[in-house]
Amino acid sequence: MITLNRIKETKISKLIEDYPFLISFFEDNDLDITSKENLEIAEYFASFDEDEIEDKAIDGERYIMQIFEFINQMIAFLGQEEDNVQSISILPGNDKSGNREKFDKFTIKKGEIICIVGPTGSGKSRLLGDIEWVAQNDTPTNRKILVNEAKPDTKWRFSSSDKLVAQLSQNMNFVMDLSVYEFVELHAESRMVENKEDVINRIIEKANQLAGEQFTIDTPITSLSGGQSRTLMIADTAILSKSPIILIDEIENAGIDRKEALNLLLSEDKIVLMATHDPILALLGDKRIVIKNGGIDKIIETTDKEREILSELEELDRTLLSFRSRLRKGEILKK
């Protein structure tokens, strides 16, 4: 591994040859290296005059430290095997009144859908927070989280690229003004995926399979409908996000094939946690966690009997949707 002192004495051109990702470091820090490639790093930072140093707030020592840090992070990131998170286990803690939660160990495996139910303010976000922060009896609930049945790596807490949980929230917006393609491309670049183009096209194709109405790669993201934005985000998160757990905050029943959306996430080996009070979604789950007074009150396994209701509900759902689409087409509604 390259040392701090070695970095100082290495020519910029050589560093970039060895670590091409440094180009984005120089660009994002607004450090112009054109025609200075032959300088050693220390010489480069010494080449700025006083005005430049003051205007651009250049601190050579700090930049060199950061280059060192960045190189090490990127090497770790690029050489990383895909994280193989097979399961997450929750060990019991306490509810808001200090009562111990009534389960021994709850393990969620890859490919499972777990629903979380309970009134607002009951502690759903805290449970999620515990998972995200891989609690080790050091959060207000005193829960403990295991990854693959073992004490988790601290990187899940502090690394900016390794997050356990990706969140798909109900009321998200796009604040950027880009086309669908450019938007997904930006995400793909930040994840540094190879064969970028294939990945982007696959995401857009998948999203369109889930969406009621189609969109193209040139559609501006800000003009996508609610349903289309959700399908794009689900496909993007399923395929591009590195997080092994996906938390979904309700999927509104409009312009999106919800069952297929969940299947897509599962086919990409995700663990799905879903906060929902929609009976169809809840019954699609394998189990559901009931939260009360800040603690896990019950864990209910979906039974076959409950699933019988599901087909009935799905029938109702289809009826509702067909009326909706007839309404959209301008038809007169009749039985």
């Binding site: 929230s169 796009f174 995400h187």
Partner: peptide, 13 residues
């Protein structure tokens, strides 16, 4: 909470 997962990841990176 008001932006997409993709934007959160890009911003953090």
């Amino acid at each position: 909470d008001i932006v997409s997962q993709a934007e959160r990841e890009v911003f953090a990176s």
